[in-house]
Design a protein around this nucleic acid. Structure first.
Length: 422
RNA sequence: GGAGAGGUGGCUGAGCGGUCGAAAGCAGCGGUUUGCUAAACCGUCGUAGGGUCAAAAGCUCUACCGGGGGUUCGAAUCCCCCCCUCUCCGCCA
């Protein structure tokens, strides 16, 4: 989404940079659409001006007591013409805006150019995956054996890709939420918020999920209420349509919410266990910053998310996504991937992005510095995905006997040192 | 869910078919005055889109008075639907 004037002036540049993420813009079509739209607007406004002048004239004549019936009759025809033209304008304008709204963000120059995830670049690797002297199990075996995870009954209650946690399993999830919120609010300077879990379509447009990614979302039947796919949506939209006092920047918020995703198009991926669910819990970090330090803030936000893994003693690595693997709204994204012995691989547990002014333009979020108002930069990242952290703890801290040692940082929350079978 | 009252520019608030993009006050901005502060006075003060322009400024036009439809030559004002806020009742956690 771009300012029309900015977009028109920088069309070629934008198209060039978008090409690096595999998005081809049909420039001719856009230009043609824009010029048709503008000429329709001019025509319609021309007629409206005439109508306004005539109406004023009628008003004047009537005040003088003249008969204006025939003039009014003529104006009726003009009114119909205006209505027809307005319809054209609306259609063209909507098409043009929809096109613009469907253009993804432009990657930052520091982002590696690439085709897909294979071109992502590892930035750092922290911690060493543990050497097991037995064959480590996956959480989908460990969880049910410990009696803390029950996927069969969840499927009965709701369906596939839902989870039911029992006892210490449920408590582990809750402990992780509290632990993460406590670390971010006490040590990293975030303010906790608890937003609605349902949002309207305007909010989803603001953060970029709509109109393009409707099929990834759950919507309440017959209502403009949508289940949030991430806390990013309600939290970023807190300031939709507002101008923030520049002295308050950066605004740093964190929120726990469940997240709901249809996972359309991911059939066959991560089908076992709770790696990929229709509902999962997440603690999210969101920042509103001034444009000149948003990339510093992205580094800090990523470090804040990584800190959770460090405190839990979980090995991870951080990669920067290539242009071809980035999300629609992002200008730069780091993925943090945690080591999962059950998968024998690193798996995404957090995604930290700088959207620059992309969301701010769509959601109209500005800040005031002196007399000027300017769009803020918005950032967010998981801090962390709770379900996947649950998996990481169960798999990384498992013992030969199937029990799970609780990391020290979590013990005050969980109240036990070891999770054992019932 | 039922009954009632409302939603107007950054805020307060008038307007209830044409003279209204909208009175007035406050805040803001520029200036005069001033030892400084304060006060007073003068001016200025919405957003988006189109045209003009190399561009900006300026000028000009169009739209916007919660959102969407309608009536009318003409709507902030009249009608319909929806949303939100407040009060009372009901229900519920």
């Amino acid at each position: 989404m771009y300012d029309l004037a900015y977009f028109r002036a920088h069309l070629d540049e934008i198209a060039g940079r978008l090409a690096t993420r595999g998005n081809a813009l049909n420039l001719d079509h856009l230009r043609d659409l824009d010029s048709r739209r503008r000429s329709a607007i001019s025509q319609a406004e021309d007629l409206k001006r005439r109508r306004n002048q005539e109406s004023a004239e009628i008003a004047r004549l009537r005040r003088e007591g003249a008969d204006t019936a025939s003039r009014q009759q003529q104006m009726r025809a003009l009114g119909e013409e205006v209505a027809a033209l307005d319809k054209q304008v609306d259609a063209l304008d909507e098409e043009f805006r929809e096109r613009l709204a469907s253009i993804p963000n432009v990657p930052h120059e520091s982002v590696p150019v690439g085709k897909d995830a294979a071109d992502n670049v590892e930035i750092r690797r922290v911690g060493t995956p543990r050497q097991f002297d037995f064959a480590p199990k996956a959480h989908w075996d460990l969880g049910p054996e410990l009696g803390i995870l029950d996927l069969e009954r969840a499927a009965k209650i709701t369906g596939a890709r839902f989870a039911l946690y029992w006892g210490l399993g449920a408590r582990l999830e809750r402990s992780l939420i509290n632990f993460m919120l406590d670390v971010h609010t006490r040590h990293h300077g975030y303010l906790e918020v608890l937003p609605p879990f349902l949002v309207n379509s305007q909010s989803l447009f603001g953060t970029g999920q709509l109109p393009k990614f409707k099929e990834d979302l759950f919507q309440c039947a017959g209502q403009d209420f949508w289940l949030i796919p991430t806390a990013e949506v309600p939290v970023t939209n807190i300031y939709r349509g507002e101008t923030i006092d520049g002295d308050l920047l950066p605004v740093k918020l964190c929120a726990y919410t469940p997240c709901f995703r249809s996972e359309a198009g991911s059939y066959g991926r991560d089908v076992r266990g709770i790696i990929r669910q229709h509902q999962f819990q997440k603690v999210e970090l969101v920042k509103f910053t001034s444009p000149d330090n948003s990339y510093d803030e992205l580094e800090k936000l990523t470090a804040d998310a990584e800190d959770i893994l460090s405190r839990l003693g979980l090995p991870y690595r951080t990669v920067v996504l290539s242009t071809g693997d980035m999300g629609f709204s992002s200008a730069k994204t780091y993925d943090i991937e945690v080591w999962l012995p059950g998968q024998n691989d690193y798996k995404e547990i957090s995604s930290c992005s700088n959207f620059e002014s992309f969301q701010a333009r769509r959601a109209n979020i500005r800040f005031r510095s002196g007399k000027q108002t300017e769009y803020v930069h918005t950032l967010n990242g998981s801090g962390l995905a709770v379900g996947r952290t649950w998996v990481a703890i169960v798999e990384n801290y498992q013992q030969r006997d199937g029990s799970v040692v609780v990391p020290e940082a979590l013990q005050p929350y969980l109240g036990v040192e070891v999770i054992r079978g019932r």
